[in-house]
Design a protein around this nucleic acid. Sequence first.
DNA 1: TCTGGGGTCCTAGGACCC
DNA 2: TCTGGGGTCCTAGGACCC
Length: 420
Amino acid sequence: MFALIDCNNFYVSCERVFNPKLEGKPVVVLSNNDGCVVARSNEAKALGFKMGEPIFQRRDLVRANKVVVLSSNFRLYGDMSGRVMTLLSGFSPDYEIYSIDEIFLGLKGYEKWDLTEYGKQIREYILQGTRLPVSVGIAPTKTLAKIANFFAKRQVYLGGVQVFRQASDAKAKLMHVDVEDIWGIGRKWSSKLRQLGICNALDLANASAIEMRKKFNVMIAKTVLELQGTSCLDLEEVAPRKNILVSRSFGYKIEKFNDLREAVTNFATIAAEKLRGQHSYACGIMVFVRTNPFSQMASQYSNSICLKFVKETNNTVVILKSAVLGLQAIFRQGYQYKKAGIMLLDLVSNNTSQEDFFIDHDKLNNKVLMDALDEINDKYGKKTIQFAVCGVRKAWGMHQENISPAYTTNWQELLIVRAN
DNA sequence: TCTGGGGTCCTAGGACCC
DNA sequence: TCTGGGGTCCTAGGACCC
């Protein structure tokens, strides 16, 4: 048995914990740069706000319904996520943190328990510990647990917990799950499946895994088996990251090389800090830039380049040099750039790295300098010291009009409670 | 005016080997 | 006249997830 526990409207719920006035109101949280809707309260969903929708297209709806529109506060959500996961991981020795707001628990050996009751205990515990509402789905396979969670969230009478003890318990409900709402079935495949007359989860459960393997691929075949009750997807170990990507859309259009260089070197610095944070080394770097693909009038350009380091490294100096070199190679004068980013490639961990007889590893990586850098910035705040190439102009700055305080991660921004 | 960011996995095809 | 069989590795692109 697997349980999938998922925080309801996670980003909105995090905001409501510290700002209870938002309770009962339509609230949306936007992506970086205040671009798209990435989280909606139930009230906002009812008004018709869609996931991923650009907010500027819905200004009328916002005004007419006094919708609260918030910029995203990822430091807050990340910290709250950590708290939720710490509490949830206490409910089973086997678990897999699947995303910022979801966790799978392995419930092997819990079969005889009253699992509905267990689910309710989980909900109450998390609510008490964090004030965040969660939904619980329990079933014999991960895919069915996802579907159980789907109903736990939507059908109020369930009280936030749905258990399918066996695949057959789910059968009556599967026809109410559209094929595109099944875990692992996205837009492209669902339209192909619909052409074959497979429109909901029951249709797919009744399909033949072997046929689906032939017509599609092994992943859809596994989904079919999972819907039928044969578990194909196990809990996964937390694997170390294979790449680190840092990219941003700009709040303003950028044309000058120096401004773009400032942005790219800032991203590279952040990525290098993350890299050292997870005790890894990168073998190379990819740099990319692009103009605004939505702009009809402006001429378009997008390009990327990969560079290999002489030896794997986590040295900001080396990474910055390569980032600038890459940017020089792909930069073209005369375009309005809207987005850029860098990716550190093929990460390897400390202890698997092959030593080179002729290279002093610590020296190559400027270990003493990097340690000092990280320690200072850790203690006194981000960018207390930085490389000059990263600049101070910030011509590319993000739009963030309505961001909440870092309630849980900054002493200066703690919630203040006043007694009247 | 205005459209996110960060990931993973699978597959087909090409290059190469003997 | 006529040109095999069996394999690996790498990469780009496409799909998916939240």
